[in-house]
């Protein structure tokens, strides 16, 4: 059990010419909740896609439960994905189905359980996220926070070993945000799973995660437990935690000298 569930070794990734990840090494120990943080557009979501096998790394290895995700064929990848759950940023619920059918979807697709058993399982999952009463609603009738909770119920329908969250806190009111945060922690413990959260919401994350990685410009720039992060002197982390506008992460997009641009622009 000492072997971590997910391990990235010197992973590099690029969209064509554009380098997204330069050299990433990190690991998610079993049973833990790990957060990956960084500014917008630093390749956090790409990391999830690499672990889920939707993209392949240019260099390095992505190991999930001992298997190299980049080397799997479609069938093996699908076998592996049945044990992974990914929560998309806005839930990605199937809009042509009810909440109940959404949660039942993976069960119906991947198991031969009887309708009665599926009914029980779905209600249990919905109960776990507190939305048993909303079973017959349509996704369009749900608020953003509720939609994300339904998506969470759908994600855990097959009791995955790895849960991945893509920006789970974006666009939620403080109460919904707290609810989702607590759910992530509780479900991780109840399922005996491991979780990976990609987010830039530092305050919420510090309360629920076991370990945090900071990514900037395609590299891991800082890491540590929540306590270490709070007390760190690292200027990047300090800027991030205290939400300062300028610091190691510059306010300005790289540009030429301001004065030259203004004066020289005329000529």
């Amino acid at each position: 059990m000492s072997e971590p569930l997910v391990r990235l070794e010197n992973v590099r990734f690029a969209y064509g010419e554009r380098m997204i990840l330069r050299d990433i090494s990190l690991s998610i120990p079993r049973g833990q909740v790990v957060a990956i943080m960084g500014g917008s557009g630093c390749g956090k979501t790409t990391l999830l896609r690499l672990i889920g096998g939707q993209e392949r790394a240019v260099g390095g290895r992505v190991l999930v439960d001992g298997q190299d995700v980049g080397g799997l064929d479609r069938e093996d990848l699908y076998t592996l994905r049945r044990r992974m759950g990914m929560l998309f940023q806005f839930g990605a619920l199937f809009t042509d189905m009810t909440v109940f059918d959404n949660v039942a979807f993976p069960l119906r697709e991947h198991t031969d359980l009887s309708p009665e058993l599926i009914n029980d399982l779905v209600l249990m999952k919905l109960h776990a996220v507190g939305l048993r009463g909303a079973a017959q609603l349509r996704p369009g009738e749900l608020s953003g926070g509720m939609a994300r909770r339904v998506a969470l119920a759908r994600t855990i329908a097959l009791d995955p070993m790895l849960l991945m969250y893509d920006e789970p806190f974006t666009g939620l009111d403080p109460i919904s945000l707290g609810v989702i945060g607590q759910l992530i922690r509780r479900l991780n413990n109840a399922l005996g799973a491991s979780s990976l959260i990609v987010t830039h919401d530092i305050q919420e994350s510090l309360q629920i995660v076991d370990y945090i990685y900071f990514i900037s410009e395609g590299r891991v720039v800082a890491e540590g437990t929540p306590d270490e992060i709070r007390n760190t002197s690292d200027p990047f982390v300090h800027q991030f935690v205290h939400a300062e506008a300028d610091g190691p992460v510059p306010f300005h997009y790289p540009a030429g000298d301001y004065a030259t641009a203004l004066v020289g622009g005329a000529g």
Partner: peptide, 9 residues
């Protein structure tokens, strides 16, 4: 994408 991640083609 969500469907694909749920191992449903």
């Amino acid at each position: 994408k969500a469907m694909d991640m749920m191992a449903v083609n």
